[in-house]
Amino acid sequence: MPINSSALEAHQTTLSTMALGKQPKALLFDIGGVCVGSPFQAILDYEAAHNIPSGWINFSISRPAPNGTWHRLERGEIKLDAHFFEGFSQDLRSKESWREFCDIRGKNQSPTHGVDATSAADSLPPPPDIDGEWLFWEMMRVASDPDPFMYPALKKLKASGQFLIAALSNTVIFPENHAYSKGIADEVRSQFDVFISSAHVGLRKPDPQIYLYAVEKMDGYVREKARVDGSLAKELGRDIGIATSDVIFLDDIGANLKTAKMVGMGTIKVQLGNVVDAVKELEKVTGLELLGEDDSKLRL
């Protein structure tokens, strides 16, 4: 679903909502690590339990971008089946990526002139032996529970009626009869007016086109609601329509936030293990009290 370059250039010239200091019309949420548990926690736990150098798993997954096995799955180009797990495991055990990972961290000198790169790679310890299939399902399990701070905040934002609430998530399509085939829990999914799933649209973050696609969908949703009954337009209390500068985007990955800023969105970083700070930022942006009474001390 391509967005032409002129549209991208136009969006890049907009100022972010945060910079303008105005209240956003739309709040756009990542899912994993924001609204539900973080799959990165499962990765960290696996590395610690198996004495794997911290950061290796993320590096091995991201290094083949944009056409690694994981990236293709999240664009819906391949199925979640035995072939995926075979390719995923190969990425996790890539000797080339392992050598680069060790070079970057100073654990091995890069091959010097006249030294065969393959020989240098063979001198390293072998890449960690990772059970890719087990790790994948553990990541999905950890990311299946609503976050105890962001999910209640999400419900309050939805109930306020002041904002369009949308999701933009890198996703996978589970086998039809799998327990996870319905995606995120119904109670979380029901909070969103618009939900953009990477595996269903053939684009994934941080590709700029998926952000612009999300804005098009949000804009279309608001305009259709206004055409039918005008309710959402009245709730927003502003001009009909959504532009990138009307959106605040929340994500836990820096590269995804960088692209959001590039296309003109305001951003909030959600830190692993510290979702509360992101909720506090949402309170500042929206003017609403989003932390519960039991969480009031967390504002200090």
Rank of each mutant, 00 (worst) to 15 (best):
A121C: 09
K261L: 13
V201R: 06
I253A: 13
R227P: 04
K156D: 03
R141C: 10
L124V: 02
A179T: 03
L272A: 14
G237F: 09
L288H: 08
K261G: 09
M262R: 06
Q12T: 15
Q191F: 04
M262Y: 09
A121N: 07
I165L: 11
S16A: 13
F136N: 00
S119Q: 06
F163P: 05
Q162N: 05
K22I: 13
G161I: 14
A179E: 05
S54D: 11
R105W: 07
I173P: 00
A42I: 12
V188D: 01
D122Y: 04
P66M: 11
I43V: 12
F192N: 05
W137Y: 14
F85A: 07
K284F: 08
G202C: 04
G287R: 04
N67V: 15
S197G: 06
S62R: 12
V201S: 03
K258M: 02
D277W: 00
D91R: 07
R72A: 08
L28Y: 06
R204C: 05
P152D: 02
G287W: 11
I253R: 08
M262F: 02
G266L: 11
I165S: 00
L80N: 00
S60P: 08
E133P: 04
Q271F: 15
T112K: 14
L298W: 12
E281C: 14
A82G: 03
D116I: 14
G237L: 02
G55Y: 13
L291R: 07
A179N: 04
S89D: 10
K182A: 10
S5C: 05
L291V: 08
S6I: 12
S245D: 07
R141T: 11
H200E: 14
F101Q: 03
S5P: 00
H200Q: 15
L212M: 15
A185I: 04
F84V: 02
I184P: 01
S169V: 14
E224W: 01
P64L: 13
E293N: 09
S123L: 06
D252A: 10
I248S: 05
V188L: 04
G254H: 13
V188G: 12
T244H: 08
F29T: 07
T171D: 12
G202D: 07
S38K: 01
Q162F: 00
D252E: 09
K217Y: 06
A65Y: 15
D45T: 02
W137V: 01
A199E: 11
S245T: 07
A49K: 13
L290N: 10
I248G: 02
V247R: 07
D129C: 04
L236P: 02
G220C: 05
Q271C: 11
A121R: 09
N274D: 13
F249Q: 00
